[in-house]
Design a protein around this nucleic acid. Structure first.
Lengths: 283, 283
DNA sequence: CGCGACCTTGACATCTGTCAACACGAGTGG
DNA sequence: CCACTCGTGTTGACAGATGTCAAGGTCGCG
Protein backbone atom coordinates (compact mmCIF):
# COMPACT_ATOMS: atom_id res chain seq x y z
CA UNK A 1 0.00 0.00 0.00
CA UNK A 2 1.83 3.02 -1.20
CA UNK A 3 1.55 6.35 0.54
CA UNK A 4 2.47 9.28 -1.66
CA UNK A 5 3.97 12.56 -0.56
CA UNK A 6 2.21 13.25 2.69
CA UNK A 7 3.55 16.34 4.35
CA UNK A 8 0.92 16.60 7.06
CA UNK A 9 -0.63 13.47 8.32
CA UNK A 10 -4.07 14.79 8.92
CA UNK A 11 -5.02 18.39 8.31
CA UNK A 12 -8.21 17.94 10.25
CA UNK A 13 -6.37 17.09 13.39
CA UNK A 14 -4.26 20.19 13.35
CA UNK A 15 -6.45 22.33 15.55
CA UNK A 16 -7.35 25.30 13.48
CA UNK A 17 -7.10 27.76 16.30
CA UNK A 18 -5.85 30.30 13.79
CA UNK A 19 -7.58 31.54 10.69
CA UNK A 20 -11.15 30.74 11.50
CA UNK A 21 -11.52 30.51 15.22
CA UNK A 22 -9.97 33.97 15.41
CA UNK A 23 -9.12 34.85 18.95
CA UNK A 24 -12.31 36.73 19.53
CA UNK A 25 -12.88 37.52 23.16
CA UNK A 26 -15.18 34.71 24.14
CA UNK A 27 -16.66 35.44 27.51
CA UNK A 28 -18.70 32.40 28.46
CA UNK A 29 -16.04 29.87 27.69
CA UNK A 30 -17.59 27.25 29.87
CA UNK A 31 -20.77 25.74 28.58
CA UNK A 32 -23.90 27.51 29.61
CA UNK A 33 -27.05 25.57 30.28
CA UNK A 34 -28.19 24.85 26.78
CA UNK A 35 -31.86 25.00 27.55
CA UNK A 36 -32.15 28.56 28.71
CA UNK A 37 -35.08 30.40 27.22
CA UNK A 38 -34.00 31.91 23.94
CA UNK A 39 -34.81 35.47 23.08
CA UNK A 40 -37.76 36.34 21.02
CA UNK A 41 -37.45 37.67 17.52
CA UNK A 42 -37.78 34.85 15.06
CA UNK A 43 -36.23 34.65 11.62
CA UNK A 44 -38.29 35.03 8.53
CA UNK A 45 -39.84 38.32 9.56
CA UNK A 46 -39.51 41.13 7.05
CA UNK A 47 -38.61 44.15 9.14
CA UNK A 48 -34.94 44.89 8.98
CA UNK A 49 -33.45 45.77 12.28
CA UNK A 50 -30.26 47.58 11.42
CA UNK A 51 -28.21 49.00 14.21
CA UNK A 52 -29.59 46.38 16.56
CA UNK A 53 -27.22 46.00 19.47
CA UNK A 54 -23.86 47.68 19.88
CA UNK A 55 -22.14 44.45 20.72
CA UNK A 56 -23.56 42.78 17.65
CA UNK A 57 -22.59 45.44 15.16
CA UNK A 58 -19.23 45.84 16.82
CA UNK A 59 -18.42 42.21 16.21
CA UNK A 60 -19.26 42.39 12.53
CA UNK A 61 -15.87 43.75 11.68
CA UNK A 62 -14.34 40.81 13.50
CA UNK A 63 -16.04 38.32 11.22
CA UNK A 64 -13.82 36.36 8.92
CA UNK A 65 -15.65 37.38 5.78
CA UNK A 66 -14.78 41.02 6.38
CA UNK A 67 -11.23 40.65 7.58
CA UNK A 68 -8.98 42.92 5.59
CA UNK A 69 -11.86 44.53 3.75
CA UNK A 70 -11.98 48.24 3.08
CA UNK A 71 -13.25 50.17 6.14
CA UNK A 72 -15.97 51.76 4.05
CA UNK A 73 -17.20 48.34 3.01
CA UNK A 74 -17.21 47.15 6.60
CA UNK A 75 -19.13 50.22 7.59
CA UNK A 76 -21.60 49.52 4.80
CA UNK A 77 -21.87 45.92 5.95
CA UNK A 78 -22.55 47.09 9.45
CA UNK A 79 -25.24 49.51 8.41
CA UNK A 80 -27.03 47.17 6.05
CA UNK A 81 -26.87 44.02 8.16
CA UNK A 82 -30.11 42.60 9.41
CA UNK A 83 -29.55 41.18 12.85
CA UNK A 84 -31.97 38.72 14.36
CA UNK A 85 -32.23 36.79 17.57
CA UNK A 86 -33.11 33.19 17.02
CA UNK A 87 -34.45 30.72 19.55
CA UNK A 88 -32.92 27.31 19.83
CA UNK A 89 -33.91 24.79 17.16
CA UNK A 90 -35.50 27.49 15.04
CA UNK A 91 -35.00 27.04 11.34
CA UNK A 92 -33.11 29.89 9.69
CA UNK A 93 -33.49 28.61 6.16
CA UNK A 94 -34.86 25.44 4.68
CA UNK A 95 -33.29 22.83 2.47
CA UNK A 96 -34.39 23.30 -1.10
CA UNK A 97 -35.37 26.91 -0.68
CA UNK A 98 -33.74 29.38 -3.06
CA UNK A 99 -30.84 31.18 -1.47
CA UNK A 100 -31.66 34.85 -1.03
CA UNK A 101 -29.46 36.05 1.79
CA UNK A 102 -25.95 35.58 3.11
CA UNK A 103 -25.74 34.72 6.79
CA UNK A 104 -23.16 34.97 9.51
CA UNK A 105 -23.19 33.97 13.15
CA UNK A 106 -22.80 36.82 15.62
CA UNK A 107 -23.32 34.71 18.73
CA UNK A 108 -24.36 31.12 19.24
CA UNK A 109 -23.98 28.37 16.69
CA UNK A 110 -25.88 26.95 13.77
CA UNK A 111 -26.02 23.47 12.38
CA UNK A 112 -26.64 22.72 8.72
CA UNK A 113 -28.60 19.52 8.27
CA UNK A 114 -29.12 17.78 4.97
CA UNK A 115 -31.88 15.22 4.56
CA UNK A 116 -32.06 12.74 1.74
CA UNK A 117 -35.16 11.53 -0.03
CA UNK A 118 -34.85 8.26 1.86
CA UNK A 119 -34.95 9.99 5.23
CA UNK A 120 -31.22 9.75 5.78
CA UNK A 121 -29.87 12.80 7.57
CA UNK A 122 -26.42 14.20 8.09
CA UNK A 123 -25.04 17.33 9.63
CA UNK A 124 -23.12 19.08 6.88
CA UNK A 125 -21.33 21.38 9.27
CA UNK A 126 -21.66 23.69 12.20
CA UNK A 127 -21.21 27.43 11.92
CA UNK A 128 -19.76 28.97 15.04
CA UNK A 129 -19.52 32.65 15.95
CA UNK A 130 -17.86 34.76 13.34
CA UNK A 131 -18.43 32.24 10.58
CA UNK A 132 -20.66 32.70 7.59
CA UNK A 133 -23.11 30.14 6.27
CA UNK A 134 -25.62 29.64 3.50
CA UNK A 135 -23.15 31.26 1.12
CA UNK A 136 -22.49 28.41 -1.24
CA UNK A 137 -25.93 28.30 -2.76
CA UNK A 138 -26.10 32.05 -3.16
CA UNK A 139 -23.85 32.27 -6.17
CA UNK A 140 -24.66 29.37 -8.35
CA UNK A 141 -28.41 29.45 -8.57
CA UNK A 142 -28.66 26.27 -6.55
CA UNK A 143 -31.05 25.83 -3.73
CA UNK A 144 -29.96 25.51 -0.15
CA UNK A 145 -28.40 22.13 0.36
CA UNK A 146 -29.66 21.79 3.91
CA UNK A 147 -31.72 23.19 6.73
CA UNK A 148 -29.99 25.73 8.93
CA UNK A 149 -31.03 25.29 12.56
CA UNK A 150 -30.00 27.26 15.59
CA UNK A 151 -28.05 24.84 17.76
CA UNK A 152 -28.52 27.26 20.63
CA UNK A 153 -29.94 30.74 21.06
CA UNK A 154 -28.26 32.85 18.41
CA UNK A 155 -27.80 36.27 16.98
CA UNK A 156 -27.58 36.02 13.22
CA UNK A 157 -26.52 38.72 10.80
CA UNK A 158 -27.61 38.58 7.19
CA UNK A 159 -27.46 40.52 3.95
CA UNK A 160 -29.49 40.25 0.80
CA UNK A 161 -27.78 38.98 -2.29
CA UNK A 162 -27.82 42.47 -3.79
CA UNK A 163 -26.30 43.94 -0.67
CA UNK A 164 -23.59 41.33 -0.62
CA UNK A 165 -22.81 41.90 -4.28
CA UNK A 166 -22.53 45.61 -3.59
CA UNK A 167 -20.20 44.90 -0.69
CA UNK A 168 -18.06 42.69 -2.88
CA UNK A 169 -18.02 45.33 -5.57
CA UNK A 170 -16.79 47.80 -2.98
CA UNK A 171 -14.21 45.43 -1.61
CA UNK A 172 -13.40 42.29 -3.57
CA UNK A 173 -11.48 41.12 -0.58
CA UNK A 174 -14.81 40.00 0.82
CA UNK A 175 -15.24 37.63 -2.09
CA UNK A 176 -11.76 36.31 -1.51
CA UNK A 177 -12.56 35.67 2.13
CA UNK A 178 -15.75 33.89 1.17
CA UNK A 179 -13.86 31.73 -1.27
CA UNK A 180 -11.45 30.99 1.54
CA UNK A 181 -14.26 29.88 3.83
CA UNK A 182 -15.81 27.75 1.15
CA UNK A 183 -12.44 26.24 0.44
CA UNK A 184 -12.08 25.40 4.10
CA UNK A 185 -15.51 23.78 4.12
CA UNK A 186 -14.68 21.85 0.99
CA UNK A 187 -11.44 20.63 2.47
CA UNK A 188 -13.22 19.46 5.58
CA UNK A 189 -15.89 17.83 3.52
CA UNK A 190 -13.36 15.93 1.47
CA UNK A 191 -11.67 14.82 4.62
CA UNK A 192 -14.98 13.54 5.88
CA UNK A 193 -15.58 11.67 2.65
CA UNK A 194 -12.22 10.01 2.97
CA UNK A 195 -12.79 9.12 6.58
CA UNK A 196 -16.20 7.69 5.79
CA UNK A 197 -14.78 5.66 2.97
CA UNK A 198 -11.74 4.28 4.71
CA UNK A 199 -11.98 4.49 8.48
CA UNK A 200 -13.78 2.73 11.27
CA UNK A 201 -16.64 4.30 13.14
CA UNK A 202 -14.63 4.97 16.26
CA UNK A 203 -11.96 6.81 14.35
CA UNK A 204 -14.52 8.92 12.57
CA UNK A 205 -16.23 9.86 15.80
CA UNK A 206 -12.90 10.81 17.30
CA UNK A 207 -12.09 12.91 14.24
CA UNK A 208 -15.47 14.57 14.49
CA UNK A 209 -14.82 15.60 18.07
CA UNK A 210 -11.34 16.83 17.24
CA UNK A 211 -12.68 18.91 14.40
CA UNK A 212 -15.35 20.44 16.58
CA UNK A 213 -12.85 21.08 19.34
CA UNK A 214 -10.72 22.93 16.83
CA UNK A 215 -13.60 24.89 15.42
CA UNK A 216 -15.55 25.78 18.53
CA UNK A 217 -13.45 24.65 21.43
CA UNK A 218 -11.91 26.47 24.30
CA UNK A 219 -9.26 25.24 26.63
CA UNK A 220 -5.70 24.06 26.38
CA UNK A 221 -3.72 21.44 24.62
CA UNK A 222 -5.06 18.45 26.47
CA UNK A 223 -8.39 19.64 27.87
CA UNK A 224 -10.96 21.24 25.63
CA UNK A 225 -14.65 22.06 25.90
CA UNK A 226 -16.82 22.22 22.81
CA UNK A 227 -19.06 25.24 23.01
CA UNK A 228 -21.71 23.82 20.69
CA UNK A 229 -24.39 21.72 22.40
CA UNK A 230 -24.17 18.20 21.03
CA UNK A 231 -26.66 15.40 21.48
CA UNK A 232 -25.52 11.87 20.72
CA UNK A 233 -27.60 12.09 17.62
CA UNK A 234 -25.66 15.16 16.47
CA UNK A 235 -22.37 13.39 16.94
CA UNK A 236 -23.68 10.41 15.01
CA UNK A 237 -24.99 12.47 12.13
CA UNK A 238 -21.75 14.39 11.94
CA UNK A 239 -19.59 11.28 12.03
CA UNK A 240 -21.81 9.45 9.61
CA UNK A 241 -22.95 6.64 11.82
CA UNK A 242 -25.97 5.72 13.90
CA UNK A 243 -27.07 7.10 17.22
CA UNK A 244 -26.40 3.70 18.76
CA UNK A 245 -22.84 3.30 17.62
CA UNK A 246 -22.00 6.87 18.59
CA UNK A 247 -23.56 6.37 21.99
CA UNK A 248 -21.58 3.21 22.57
CA UNK A 249 -18.30 4.86 21.70
CA UNK A 250 -18.91 8.00 23.73
CA UNK A 251 -20.15 6.02 26.70
CA UNK A 252 -17.03 3.88 26.59
CA UNK A 253 -14.77 6.92 26.42
CA UNK A 254 -16.67 8.61 29.18
CA UNK A 255 -16.21 5.52 31.29
CA UNK A 256 -12.45 5.63 30.95
CA UNK A 257 -12.28 9.34 31.67
CA UNK A 258 -11.32 10.39 28.19
CA UNK A 259 -14.18 12.87 28.04
CA UNK A 260 -17.31 13.97 29.81
CA UNK A 261 -20.69 15.33 28.81
CA UNK A 262 -22.93 17.57 30.86
CA UNK A 263 -26.16 18.95 29.56
CA UNK A 264 -25.22 18.21 25.98
CA UNK A 265 -21.93 19.97 26.39
CA UNK A 266 -18.92 17.88 25.72
CA UNK A 267 -15.57 18.21 27.40
CA UNK A 268 -12.54 16.37 26.17
CA UNK A 269 -10.14 15.52 28.96
CA UNK A 270 -7.42 13.81 26.99
CA UNK A 271 -6.88 15.23 23.55
CA UNK A 272 -3.75 13.19 22.86
CA UNK A 273 -5.59 9.95 23.53
CA UNK A 274 -8.46 11.02 21.32
CA UNK A 275 -5.99 11.90 18.59
CA UNK A 276 -4.45 8.49 18.93
CA UNK A 277 -7.83 6.87 18.50
CA UNK A 278 -8.57 9.07 15.50
CA UNK A 279 -5.40 7.84 13.87
CA UNK A 280 -6.32 4.25 14.50
CA UNK A 281 -3.70 3.96 17.22
CA UNK A 282 -5.23 1.15 19.22
CA UNK A 283 -7.54 -0.33 16.58
CA UNK B 1 -38.67 8.01 10.24
CA UNK B 2 -39.66 11.55 9.47
CA UNK B 3 -38.76 13.21 6.23
CA UNK B 4 -38.79 16.98 6.41
CA UNK B 5 -39.58 19.40 3.62
CA UNK B 6 -37.96 17.78 0.63
CA UNK B 7 -38.61 19.69 -2.55
CA UNK B 8 -36.22 17.75 -4.73
CA UNK B 9 -35.54 14.18 -3.93
CA UNK B 10 -31.95 14.05 -4.98
CA UNK B 11 -30.13 17.01 -6.46
CA UNK B 12 -27.29 14.80 -7.60
CA UNK B 13 -29.54 12.78 -9.81
CA UNK B 14 -30.82 15.76 -11.69
CA UNK B 15 -28.36 15.69 -14.53
CA UNK B 16 -26.62 18.98 -14.46
CA UNK B 17 -26.47 19.35 -18.20
CA UNK B 18 -26.77 23.09 -17.72
CA UNK B 19 -24.49 25.39 -15.79
CA UNK B 20 -21.30 23.37 -15.73
CA UNK B 21 -21.34 20.97 -18.60
CA UNK B 22 -21.90 23.94 -20.87
CA UNK B 23 -22.72 22.80 -24.34
CA UNK B 24 -19.22 23.24 -25.62
CA UNK B 25 -18.73 21.65 -29.00
CA UNK B 26 -17.27 18.30 -28.05
CA UNK B 27 -16.00 16.60 -31.14
CA UNK B 28 -14.88 13.16 -30.06
CA UNK B 29 -17.95 12.29 -28.09
CA UNK B 30 -17.23 8.61 -28.31
CA UNK B 31 -14.39 7.35 -26.20
CA UNK B 32 -11.04 7.46 -27.83
CA UNK B 33 -8.48 4.84 -27.04
CA UNK B 34 -7.33 6.01 -23.66
CA UNK B 35 -3.78 4.85 -24.07
CA UNK B 36 -2.73 6.97 -26.96
CA UNK B 37 0.65 8.57 -26.52
CA UNK B 38 0.18 11.89 -24.74
CA UNK B 39 1.96 14.97 -26.00
CA UNK B 40 5.11 16.15 -24.48
CA UNK B 41 5.33 19.28 -22.41
CA UNK B 42 5.12 18.41 -18.75
CA UNK B 43 3.78 20.59 -15.99
CA UNK B 44 6.08 22.23 -13.54
CA UNK B 45 8.29 23.87 -16.11
CA UNK B 46 8.79 27.61 -15.69
CA UNK B 47 8.55 28.97 -19.23
CA UNK B 48 5.19 30.50 -19.83
CA UNK B 49 3.72 29.62 -23.16
CA UNK B 50 1.13 32.30 -23.77
CA UNK B 51 -0.69 32.29 -27.05
CA UNK B 52 -0.15 28.57 -27.30
CA UNK B 53 -2.77 27.15 -29.59
CA UNK B 54 -5.64 29.08 -31.14
CA UNK B 55 -8.17 26.47 -30.13
CA UNK B 56 -6.98 26.55 -26.54
CA UNK B 57 -7.07 30.29 -26.10
CA UNK B 58 -10.34 30.49 -27.93
CA UNK B 59 -11.99 28.17 -25.46
CA UNK B 60 -10.86 30.18 -22.48
CA UNK B 61 -13.74 32.57 -22.81
CA UNK B 62 -16.05 29.58 -22.76
CA UNK B 63 -14.85 28.50 -19.34
CA UNK B 64 -17.29 28.78 -16.52
CA UNK B 65 -15.03 30.94 -14.37
CA UNK B 66 -15.05 33.68 -16.98
CA UNK B 67 -18.67 33.55 -18.03
CA UNK B 68 -20.14 37.01 -17.85
CA UNK B 69 -16.84 38.64 -17.03
CA UNK B 70 -15.78 41.92 -18.56
CA UNK B 71 -14.31 41.42 -22.06
CA UNK B 72 -11.14 43.18 -21.03
CA UNK B 73 -10.70 40.77 -18.16
CA UNK B 74 -11.25 37.80 -20.45
CA UNK B 75 -8.72 39.20 -22.84
CA UNK B 76 -6.28 39.61 -19.97
CA UNK B 77 -6.98 36.07 -18.86
CA UNK B 78 -6.31 34.85 -22.36
CA UNK B 79 -3.03 36.69 -22.67
CA UNK B 80 -1.70 35.75 -19.25
CA UNK B 81 -2.76 32.11 -19.24
CA UNK B 82 -0.07 29.51 -19.24
CA UNK B 83 -1.20 26.57 -21.30
CA UNK B 84 0.40 23.19 -20.97
CA UNK B 85 -0.06 19.80 -22.49
CA UNK B 86 -0.03 17.06 -19.94
CA UNK B 87 0.48 13.36 -20.53
CA UNK B 88 -1.85 10.85 -18.97
CA UNK B 89 -1.28 10.16 -15.26
CA UNK B 90 1.07 13.11 -14.92
CA UNK B 91 0.76 14.96 -11.65
CA UNK B 92 -0.27 18.59 -12.05
CA UNK B 93 0.07 19.50 -8.41
CA UNK B 94 0.75 17.50 -5.29
CA UNK B 95 -1.23 17.07 -2.12
CA UNK B 96 0.24 19.19 0.63
CA UNK B 97 2.02 21.56 -1.68
CA UNK B 98 1.21 25.24 -1.23
CA UNK B 99 -1.30 26.48 -3.79
CA UNK B 100 0.34 28.93 -6.16
CA UNK B 101 -1.71 28.80 -9.32
CA UNK B 102 -5.31 28.53 -10.40
CA UNK B 103 -6.00 25.82 -12.95
CA UNK B 104 -8.65 25.11 -15.52
CA UNK B 105 -9.15 22.26 -17.94
CA UNK B 106 -9.03 23.20 -21.61
CA UNK B 107 -9.28 19.65 -22.93
CA UNK B 108 -9.16 16.28 -21.24
CA UNK B 109 -10.01 15.63 -17.63
CA UNK B 110 -8.30 15.70 -14.28
CA UNK B 111 -8.88 13.73 -11.15
CA UNK B 112 -8.18 15.05 -7.69
CA UNK B 113 -7.03 12.31 -5.36
CA UNK B 114 -6.70 12.66 -1.62
CA UNK B 115 -4.58 10.23 0.37
CA UNK B 116 -4.80 9.84 4.10
CA UNK B 117 -1.95 9.17 6.46
CA UNK B 118 -3.15 5.58 6.73
CA UNK B 119 -2.89 5.05 3.00
CA UNK B 120 -6.60 5.39 2.40
CA UNK B 121 -7.32 7.11 -0.88
CA UNK B 122 -10.37 8.74 -2.37
CA UNK B 123 -11.09 10.67 -5.50
CA UNK B 124 -12.31 14.07 -4.38
CA UNK B 125 -13.69 14.96 -7.77
CA UNK B 126 -13.03 15.05 -11.47
CA UNK B 127 -12.54 18.28 -13.38
CA UNK B 128 -13.83 18.05 -16.93
CA UNK B 129 -13.23 20.47 -19.77
CA UNK B 130 -14.11 24.05 -18.95
CA UNK B 131 -13.96 23.47 -15.21
CA UNK B 132 -11.47 25.01 -12.83
CA UNK B 133 -9.60 23.13 -10.12
CA UNK B 134 -7.10 23.70 -7.39
CA UNK B 135 -8.90 26.92 -6.53
CA UNK B 136 -10.06 26.17 -3.03
CA UNK B 137 -6.63 26.11 -1.46
CA UNK B 138 -5.53 29.25 -3.23
CA UNK B 139 -7.41 31.69 -1.07
CA UNK B 140 -7.17 30.44 2.43
CA UNK B 141 -3.52 29.71 2.85
CA UNK B 142 -4.21 26.01 3.00
CA UNK B 143 -2.20 23.51 1.11
CA UNK B 144 -3.58 21.47 -1.72
CA UNK B 145 -5.96 18.89 -0.35
CA UNK B 146 -5.09 16.30 -2.97
CA UNK B 147 -2.99 15.33 -5.94
CA UNK B 148 -4.23 16.50 -9.32
CA UNK B 149 -3.60 13.86 -11.96
CA UNK B 150 -4.37 13.94 -15.65
CA UNK B 151 -7.00 11.27 -16.19
CA UNK B 152 -6.18 11.42 -19.90
CA UNK B 153 -4.01 13.59 -22.13
CA UNK B 154 -4.91 17.16 -21.25
CA UNK B 155 -4.43 20.78 -22.04
CA UNK B 156 -4.41 22.77 -18.84
CA UNK B 157 -4.59 26.51 -18.45
CA UNK B 158 -3.30 28.18 -15.32
CA UNK B 159 -2.73 31.57 -13.77
CA UNK B 160 -0.58 32.65 -10.87
CA UNK B 161 -2.30 33.81 -7.74
CA UNK B 162 -1.30 37.40 -8.46
CA UNK B 163 -2.65 37.18 -11.98
CA UNK B 164 -5.92 35.74 -10.75
CA UNK B 165 -6.25 38.44 -8.12
CA UNK B 166 -5.68 41.05 -10.80
CA UNK B 167 -8.32 39.42 -12.95
CA UNK B 168 -10.76 39.43 -10.07
CA UNK B 169 -9.96 43.03 -9.35
CA UNK B 170 -10.74 43.81 -12.96
CA UNK B 171 -13.91 41.80 -12.96
CA UNK B 172 -15.30 40.63 -9.61
CA UNK B 173 -17.68 38.49 -11.57
CA UNK B 174 -14.84 36.00 -11.84
CA UNK B 175 -14.76 35.67 -8.07
CA UNK B 176 -18.51 35.15 -8.07
CA UNK B 177 -18.16 32.41 -10.63
CA UNK B 178 -15.44 30.76 -8.61
CA UNK B 179 -17.61 30.91 -5.53
CA UNK B 180 -20.32 29.29 -7.61
CA UNK B 181 -18.04 26.45 -8.64
CA UNK B 182 -16.86 25.91 -5.12
CA UNK B 183 -20.44 25.92 -3.96
CA UNK B 184 -21.27 23.27 -6.50
CA UNK B 185 -18.34 21.16 -5.33
CA UNK B 186 -19.38 21.62 -1.75
CA UNK B 187 -22.91 20.59 -2.51
CA UNK B 188 -21.72 17.49 -4.27
CA UNK B 189 -19.36 16.70 -1.46
CA UNK B 190 -22.11 16.99 1.10
CA UNK B 191 -24.25 14.72 -0.98
CA UNK B 192 -21.45 12.21 -1.04
CA UNK B 193 -21.07 12.41 2.70
CA UNK B 194 -24.75 11.73 3.14
CA UNK B 195 -24.68 8.85 0.73
CA UNK B 196 -21.67 7.35 2.43
CA UNK B 197 -23.30 7.69 5.79
CA UNK B 198 -26.70 6.32 4.92
CA UNK B 199 -26.69 4.30 1.73
CA UNK B 200 -25.57 0.88 0.58
CA UNK B 201 -22.59 0.40 -1.65
CA UNK B 202 -24.61 -0.36 -4.74
CA UNK B 203 -26.62 2.82 -4.39
CA UNK B 204 -23.50 4.88 -3.95
CA UNK B 205 -21.86 3.39 -7.00
CA UNK B 206 -24.98 4.09 -9.02
CA UNK B 207 -25.01 7.65 -7.74
CA UNK B 208 -21.38 8.04 -8.64
CA UNK B 209 -22.05 6.98 -12.22
CA UNK B 210 -25.05 9.25 -12.49
CA UNK B 211 -23.04 12.17 -11.24
CA UNK B 212 -20.27 11.52 -13.69
CA UNK B 213 -22.74 11.06 -16.51
CA UNK B 214 -24.17 14.45 -15.65
CA UNK B 215 -20.81 16.12 -15.39
CA UNK B 216 -18.94 14.58 -18.30
CA UNK B 217 -21.45 12.55 -20.21
CA UNK B 218 -22.71 12.75 -23.70
CA UNK B 219 -25.76 11.09 -25.11
CA UNK B 220 -29.46 11.14 -24.51
CA UNK B 221 -31.90 10.55 -21.72
CA UNK B 222 -31.44 6.82 -21.45
CA UNK B 223 -28.05 6.17 -23.03
CA UNK B 224 -25.00 8.08 -21.91
CA UNK B 225 -21.27 7.69 -22.33
CA UNK B 226 -18.90 9.05 -19.71
CA UNK B 227 -16.01 10.78 -21.42
CA UNK B 228 -13.61 10.34 -18.51
CA UNK B 229 -11.66 7.08 -18.53
CA UNK B 230 -12.61 5.12 -15.43
CA UNK B 231 -10.92 2.06 -14.02
CA UNK B 232 -12.80 -0.02 -11.49
CA UNK B 233 -10.48 1.42 -8.92
CA UNK B 234 -11.54 4.94 -9.85
CA UNK B 235 -15.18 4.07 -9.48
CA UNK B 236 -14.47 2.49 -6.12
CA UNK B 237 -12.50 5.45 -4.80
CA UNK B 238 -15.16 7.83 -5.97
CA UNK B 239 -17.99 5.84 -4.47
CA UNK B 240 -16.09 5.23 -1.27
CA UNK B 241 -15.81 1.49 -1.42
CA UNK B 242 -13.27 -1.12 -2.41
CA UNK B 243 -12.15 -2.18 -5.83
CA UNK B 244 -13.71 -5.58 -5.23
CA UNK B 245 -17.16 -4.40 -4.32
CA UNK B 246 -17.21 -1.93 -7.19
CA UNK B 247 -16.07 -4.61 -9.60
CA UNK B 248 -18.78 -6.96 -8.44
CA UNK B 249 -21.50 -4.38 -8.87
CA UNK B 250 -20.33 -3.20 -12.27
CA UNK B 251 -19.83 -6.74 -13.53
CA UNK B 252 -23.35 -7.61 -12.45
CA UNK B 253 -24.80 -4.58 -14.17
CA UNK B 254 -22.77 -5.25 -17.24
CA UNK B 255 -24.12 -8.78 -17.29
CA UNK B 256 -27.70 -7.60 -17.35
CA UNK B 257 -27.05 -5.04 -20.04
CA UNK B 258 -27.45 -2.01 -17.85
CA UNK B 259 -24.08 -0.67 -18.91
CA UNK B 260 -20.92 -1.54 -20.78
CA UNK B 261 -17.25 -0.72 -20.47
CA UNK B 262 -14.72 -0.64 -23.23
CA UNK B 263 -11.15 0.41 -22.74
CA UNK B 264 -11.93 2.06 -19.43
CA UNK B 265 -14.74 4.01 -21.00
CA UNK B 266 -18.11 3.47 -19.50
CA UNK B 267 -21.41 3.60 -21.31
CA UNK B 268 -24.70 3.56 -19.48
CA UNK B 269 -27.44 1.89 -21.47
CA UNK B 270 -30.31 2.31 -19.07
CA UNK B 271 -30.23 5.50 -17.09
CA UNK B 272 -33.71 5.03 -15.60
CA UNK B 273 -32.74 1.65 -14.18
CA UNK B 274 -29.55 3.06 -12.76
CA UNK B 275 -31.52 5.88 -11.21
CA UNK B 276 -33.85 3.35 -9.66
CA UNK B 277 -30.92 1.52 -8.15
CA UNK B 278 -29.46 4.77 -6.88
CA UNK B 279 -32.69 5.45 -5.08
CA UNK B 280 -32.69 2.03 -3.50
CA UNK B 281 -35.51 0.91 -5.73
CA UNK B 282 -34.88 -2.80 -5.74
CA UNK B 283 -32.78 -3.08 -2.60
C1' DC C 1 -48.88 10.25 36.51
C1' DG C 2 -48.10 10.08 31.63
C1' DC C 3 -45.40 11.76 27.95
C1' DG C 4 -41.61 13.01 25.18
C1' DA C 5 -36.71 13.68 24.47
C1' DC C 6 -32.59 11.71 25.22
C1' DC C 7 -29.40 8.02 26.41
C1' DT C 8 -27.82 3.15 27.24
C1' DT C 9 -27.38 -1.71 26.49
C1' DG C 10 -28.01 -6.46 24.55
C1' DA C 11 -28.77 -9.73 20.75
C1' DC C 12 -28.55 -10.65 16.11
C1' DA C 13 -28.21 -10.51 10.98
C1' DT C 14 -25.79 -9.00 7.15
C1' DC C 15 -23.27 -6.02 4.35
C1' DT C 16 -18.90 -5.47 2.87
C1' DG C 17 -14.00 -5.36 3.61
C1' DT C 18 -10.22 -8.69 3.56
C1' DC C 19 -7.71 -12.57 1.89
C1' DA C 20 -6.75 -15.42 -1.85
C1' DA C 21 -6.58 -17.13 -6.43
C1' DC C 22 -6.95 -16.70 -11.17
C1' DA C 23 -7.63 -14.63 -16.07
C1' DC C 24 -6.38 -11.49 -19.60
C1' DG C 25 -3.68 -8.26 -22.38
C1' DA C 26 0.32 -5.41 -23.09
C1' DG C 27 4.75 -4.68 -22.85
C1' DT C 28 9.75 -6.27 -22.37
C1' DG C 29 13.62 -8.83 -22.88
C1' DG C 30 16.16 -12.93 -23.93
C1' DC D 1 8.69 -17.35 -29.90
C1' DC D 2 8.54 -17.85 -25.00
C1' DA D 3 8.84 -16.42 -20.23
C1' DC D 4 8.07 -12.94 -17.25
C1' DT D 5 6.18 -8.88 -15.09
C1' DC D 6 2.73 -5.47 -14.42
C1' DG D 7 -1.73 -3.41 -14.47
C1' DT D 8 -6.33 -4.46 -14.56
C1' DG D 9 -10.49 -7.09 -13.77
C1' DT D 10 -13.22 -11.15 -11.87
C1' DT D 11 -14.71 -14.37 -8.47
C1' DG D 12 -15.14 -17.20 -4.11
C1' DA D 13 -14.86 -17.80 0.93
C1' DC D 14 -14.99 -15.85 5.32
C1' DA D 15 -14.94 -12.92 9.47
C1' DG D 16 -16.04 -8.92 11.69
C1' DA D 17 -17.76 -4.31 12.15
C1' DT D 18 -21.83 -2.09 12.42
C1' DG D 19 -26.66 -1.30 11.37
C1' DT D 20 -31.15 -2.97 13.03
C1' DC D 21 -34.38 -4.48 16.36
C1' DA D 22 -35.81 -4.38 20.96
C1' DA D 23 -36.16 -3.03 25.70
C1' DG D 24 -35.49 -0.15 29.38
C1' DG D 25 -33.69 3.97 32.14
C1' DT D 26 -33.43 8.93 33.39
C1' DC D 27 -34.93 13.54 33.41
C1' DG D 28 -37.92 17.47 32.86
C1' DC D 29 -42.53 19.09 32.15
C1' DG D 30 -47.48 19.70 31.93
Amino acid sequence: MFVPAQPECCPACALRVGAFALAQPFAGAMPQTGTQAGPLVVAGADPSVPGHGEAATASIHAMHMFSGAAPAAIEAARSTARIERIARDTRIFAQGSPARRAFAVVTGSVRIVQSGADGGQIICCFAARGESFGIAALFNGERQSGDALAAQPCEIASWSQAQLLALIEASPRIAINLIGSLGQCLLESHNRVRELATQRCEQRIAHTLLRLAGQAGCGGESHRAISIPLRRRDVAETAGTTLHTASRALAAWEKCGLLATREQHLMIHDMPALTRIAHGGDN
